[in-house]
Structures are given as C-alpha cells and as structure tokens.
Design a binder for these strands. Sequence first.
DNA 1: CCTGAAATACTGATTCT
DNA 2: AGAATCAGTATTTCAGG
Lengths: 153, 153
Amino acid sequence: MQNHLKKEIIHLDGIDSRLIELLYENARTPVTELSRAVGMTAPSVNERLKRLEEKGVIAGYRIEVNPTVLGYSLIAIVRMRPLPGKLKALEALIVSIPEFVECDKVTGEDCYIARLYLKDISDLDPILDRFSELADTNTAIVKSTPVKRRLLV
Amino acid sequence: MQNHLKKEIIHLDGIDSRLIELLYENARTPVTELSRAVGMTAPSVNERLKRLEEKGVIAGYRIEVNPTVLGYSLIAIVRMRPLPGKLKALEALIVSIPEFVECDKVTGEDCYIARLYLKDISDLDPILDRFSELADTNTAIVKSTPVKRRLLV
DNA sequence: CCTGAAATACTGATTCT
DNA sequence: AGAATCAGTATTTCAGG
C-alpha cells in the first residue's frame, strides 16, 4: 500500500495543461476566452480552475514586475557559508533585506544561495559588509539570463 | 542633459505600489475590488494598470504552478563551467531541457547557474551525464527555501 | 459537463478639476 | 493629465439537468 499522506501526485489532462499554459501567458485571461480556446463552456472551465486551485496545482495568480524599470539594473547571485554558530543569524539577516528576492538553503559547501537585486554596483559592498561577521560570501553578477523562469513542461 | 534612451526610471506613488502589492497576492483580482481597496473608481484604476503595463512595470500576469503537486519533489541548483570551446553548445543544451526552469549566465568561475526540477534523485545523474563533454558541473540540492521569490520593496 | 439567467464587472465617451 | 460618471457590453456565477 502506498503512502497517501501528503504525497498524492496530480496528473493533468490535455485541457488542464492547455489552461495552465494560457494562464501562464496571461493570468488575467477571462474564463470565457479560455473556454473558447479549449472548446468548452465557461462554467466548465471555471470548475476546472477551482479544482486546480484546490488541489494546489495553481498556487496563485501573480504579476511579474520588471525590476529594471524601477531602477534595479543589476542582479547578483550570492552564495554564503555561515561562520561557526552564525547559521540562524545569517538566515534572519538574508530574510530581512528586501533586495534578496529569493534564497535557497542547499546541501554542500555553500549553505545558502540567494538572488540579490541592486540599483547600482556601488550598493553591493554595503550589503555584503553586513554579512562580514556571519558568513563567507561569494558573489557572481548576472550578465544575461538564457532561461527566464519558465513553466515546467 | 540626461540620457533618455532606455534608461528612464519609473517612480511609483503609493496607489501604484498598493495596486502592485494587491495584484502580486492575486493577479485576478477584479478592477472593481482593487478600486475599492485604493479608494478610486474602476476606470481610474484601469487607466493606472494600463499605464503600468505600457511603462513596463507590470511585465505580465502569470500563474504560479506548484511543481511538487505534479511530482517534482526535488530542486537542484547546478553551477556549470564550460569546457574549452563548448560554451555555445552548453547553453543550447541547458535551454533545451525543460527541467531547467531558470538559468543565469554570470561572472566568475562558474559561467552558468541553473535551477533544475526533478521528480526523483535518480533523475539527476542521467541529466548531468548529458553535460559530461561540455562542462564541469557542481550540484547542490535545495533543502528549504527561506525566501520564496518575492516582490522587491 | 452543459444551458440559461441573474449578478457583477469591464470599456468607452464625455465631463470635470 | 488624471480622475469621475454613466451607459452599453461582456463576463462571472449560480441554478437545474
């Protein structure tokens, strides 16, 4: 017997996949337009969306904000290895700085890998200085993004 | 005279910021509801949204899909350094594999940093094997995500 | 999953400040 | 220029099958 605690995997049919694709392109697409695209009525599509939300496939509807337009012209990837006893403090500091827009805790030598948005390269050092007592850091500047965050499948 | 080619920085007032916040929480919020939240009429809010789209602040409306529910229970961060003469081929291979949902080209020793979704740890080696002639790779498994991709500001 | 109808939301032209 | 009002369409959301 399989483990049914939290491990149920959802399988999407062709119509669900298409709906997800369409909504990834434009999450504000009206249900009536979606329904035309998949050859169904609006209430049916609405039900499917509700189901996809309930099952957790659709975790949310978000806007994508372009940080460049707001003056954040640089992205850095910062890897951090906490100094002895500083792990909790390190993580708390990362979380508290809004310019860190994402951070993963990982296996291996580096403990944290974070994505940092900057208005200017001169903003980098003041931020990294705040970590000098907490971690060894290694910073790489993003030159381009060959794959922009995309939908799996 | 300032440079007006591509470098104009947009400044948001309080209402724009609030609209962006609300739409980040739920990009399908009806304009009428947004208008109630910010104390304006629906057409005014609609104009603001159009302006934010035109200026490029709002780059798009997306859904957030939960990969775990679809069976992708592991995330890996893969750093890659191309072997001599293999840079183009390496980038092309990364782009061609849908499980790489994001990839940045960066300064420093590692040339690429990519995010890889996996159904199972046993799927890792077959994918990395495809890179054996193209790059030295370094893989870290994500244990947790202290900061989930969030809005700047 | 569909039909049909009621409630709600969107869109634009126009006016006002 | 940006915001309000109002009227005409379009969309969403239930009911019932």
